[in-house]
Amino acid sequence: MAEIKENAFLGPLNKNNPVAVQVLGICSALAVTAELKPALIMGLSVTIIVALSNVVISLIRKTIPTSVRIIVQLVVVAALVTVVSEVLKAFVYDVSVQLSVYIGLIITNCILMGRLEAFAMQNKPWESFLDGLGNGCGYAMVLIIVAIFRELLGSGSLMGYRVIPESWYVDNGGCYMNNGMMMMPSMALILVACVIWVHRSFNKDLQDK
């Protein structure tokens, strides 16, 4: 039992990472990582939603008829997404505007449906909670790594604070320029690929033969 618990949380952070290994949730990973702040908020939101919906589904897993289980799962997720979305609008309005539809689209995030179907339907609430937490954190981790590089190289700042001094820029007599491509989703895809590359080079067992 202890083993399942440990793996439920730590597995998704490394060997079973939802983004780097299972290649799920890529769409939102490309869309929200242009800056660090929205990426953090997005990672946090997904973590909360996966963890809680996993618990809820796990609690009622024995009463859900198999034929309508997807709809039940969707209703649970939708309720949580709505709550999170309202909370964001109330407390961090500017970020919620930036994230726009992507908070609402968490409902279609493959990571969520995958964890609900594959884990919460078969396991007890506490394990499901850990699994949700682990997957959410694994997702957030990749998002944050990608966002750090994109914001640093694309805007020269982190969390909105200037890191690369203004005086380095071409406009101010320096020779540095922000990399415009970092602001495009295509570069996010390449960065995700780099994360996967580094990850696999440390985990030889994940490499394709």
Binding site: G180, M181, M184
Partner: peptide
């Protein structure tokens, strides 16, 4: 292409 999309002003 990398130059073109990264540093369009140059």
């Amino acid at each position: 292409a990398f130059l073109f999309f990264s540093y369009p002003s140059k």
